Amino acid sequence: MVDATSAFQDSLPVSSDDLLAQMRAAGVEFELYEHIPLRTVEDAKTVQGGAVPGGPGRIDIKNFYLRDRKKRNHLVVLEQDREVDLKALGAQMGVAGLSFGSADRLMEFLGVRPGAVSPLAMVNGAGTGVQLWMDAAVKAADFVHAHPLVNDRTVAIRPGDLESLLAGWGADISWLEP
């Protein structure tokens, strides 16, 4: 069965290895951690402070691929413990009828499988019209932890480097205040 781990990265539009090579070529410094597959925030918390170092200045995120009533695609990146009410989130974003996108659409628009969604999926999403929304808390962190298109790897990347990568891919960030 195909899953979101690096064992199946060659079936993605951009493999995790290719993404990491792009990041290195762009001069982006990052720390790479390999760990058990993480499908949920609860899974991620089992490796935080262990396989994925935690601590002050590091922010762990959760990511949602959503569609609105007008069938527009959104990638929402929030601090992992932030409460989410889709109706209130939609009001903050100025869109109505937010719902979770299907696994097929996730692959079509972001090029990843469920469990591997992250802002780094905008390497694909920028070209397919996905709107990126990020928690303003990301800007204040020293490092952001994100999956590099697979869920058994995590990179720690500086927010400024992440913003530069996203801009290079043509992704515009809309910031969400708490």
Rank of each mutant, 00 (worst) to 15 (best):
G101A: 11
R105Q: 11
A91Q: 14
V95L: 02
E79I: 11
Q80T: 11
A103K: 09
K87M: 10
M93V: 07
V95N: 05
Q80H: 14
E79C: 13
S102M: 06
V84Y: 02
Q92N: 15
A103G: 06
S102H: 08
Q92V: 12
E79Y: 04
D85H: 14
V84E: 00
S99G: 13
L89Y: 02
G94L: 03
V84F: 08
L78R: 03
E79T: 15
M93R: 02
Q92Y: 11
S99H: 15
Q80I: 04
A96H: 06
G101P: 06
V77R: 01
K87D: 11
E79V: 01
Q92T: 14
G101Y: 12
F100V: 12
L89E: 03
A96N: 04
L89N: 01
Q80E: 15
A88Y: 00
V95T: 12
A103R: 08
S99D: 13
A88P: 05
R82K: 15
S99N: 14
G90L: 01
V77W: 01
L86S: 06
G94D: 05
L86K: 09
L78F: 00
D85M: 10
S99T: 14
G90C: 10
S99K: 15
F100W: 06
Q92W: 04
V76F: 06
G94S: 12
G97K: 05
L89R: 02
Q80N: 14
L75P: 05
G90N: 12
G101I: 06
L75I: 08
E79P: 09
V84C: 05
